[in-house]
């Protein structure tokens, strides 16, 4: 059975889609069969971050309504064979999804893939609830900033009460904290919550810390998930996330301010 992972946050703009794209592609690069689903009905964006926006013909809602088969709607990634994307619809009404029809699609996908990564919309409305309902694991994407941390805590409450696992009294959803846009320099200056601060408040296991990085904007400009930028700090941090998701123990990087060598200081490297 496939592992269903929801990338969620409550608050918008914290890096859910960036993270979904990086994690989906990263898992596929490791040889796993992965499908990335955009649950943000009406505000499709995962296709753009993945660089396949021109190839969207059918979408999630078409499949739900029986206007297209799954195979027609799934977009095969051009870089990694084992990765597909199921785009959200851009125009349809967002009430198209319900537990029953989403469950059916996920079941069918579960037979074709090892990982189903669900990119949740922001908020705590129906769309976000749909994205997390069937999840086995949740990656709670959080910025080290008060409103994001508070919203993440609310989402944790939803995961514990509104998911299928909660309703059926099964083993609870496995929660992971993904801290994004982290700036060690500002943490050192006392201007930003530290990893430990956020861990203290949310008390869920840490999956990764993605440093604030120029590589992320460059990656979305190009439609190339940042994990492909193997030289960048954010790319490397996402690589570590993949290792941890696959059960490896990897030391956390990019948590402290990098000390510049005298040479690079002199020559501005």
């Amino acid at each position: 059975m496939a592992r269903i992972i929801v990338v969620t946050s409550g608050k918008g703009g914290v890096g859910k889609t960036t993270s979904s794209a990086a994690i989906g592609l990263g898992l596929a690069l490791k040889g796993h069969k992965v499908v990335l689903i955009d649950f943000d009905i009406g505000l499709r964006n995962l296709d753009l971050i993945m660089g396949c926006e021109r190839r969207v013909v059918y979408d999630f809602v078409n499949v739900i309504n029986g206007e297209a088969t799954l195979n027609q709607a799934l977009i095969k990634d051009k870089r990694v064979k084992s990765l597909s994307i199921l785009p959200a619809s851009q125009t349809r009404d967002k009430d198209a999804l319900n537990k029953e029809n989403v469950g059916k699609v996920l079941e069918e996908l579960g037979e074709m893939y090892d990982f189903i990564v669900c990119d949740s919309p922001a908020g705590i409305e129906a769309g976000a609830m749909m994205a997390l309902y069937y999840a086995d694991e949740a990656i709670v994407t959080t910025n080290p900033e008060v409103s994001s941390v508070r919203d993440s805590d609310r989402i944790l409450g939803m995961l514990a009460s509104r998911s299928r696992r909660a309703e059926l009294g099964l083993e609870p959803i496995k929660e992971h904290l993904l801290l994004t846009r982290y700036s060690p320099k500002r943490v050192a200056e006392g201007e930003m919550l530290s990893v430990e601060d956020v861990e203290d408040i949310l008390s869920i296991p840490l999956l990764g810390v993605i440093p604030e990085s120029q590589a992320v904007l460059k990656a979305s400009n190009a439609g190339e998930p940042v994990i492909l930028d193997t030289e960048s700090d954010a790319g490397k941090a996402y690589q570590d996330v993949i290792e941890r998701l696959l059960g490896e123990t990897v030391e956390f990087r990019f948590l402290t301010v990098e000390k510049k060598s005298i040479l690079s200081r002199l020559f501005g490297g």
Partner: peptide, 24 residues
Amino acid sequence: KQVTTASKAKERLQIIVAHERNSR
């Protein structure tokens, strides 16, 4: 520097999150 804005943020969050969890 002793009272940083980050520590203020943490304190405020701990209070509000505990409160919201309680009512939840």
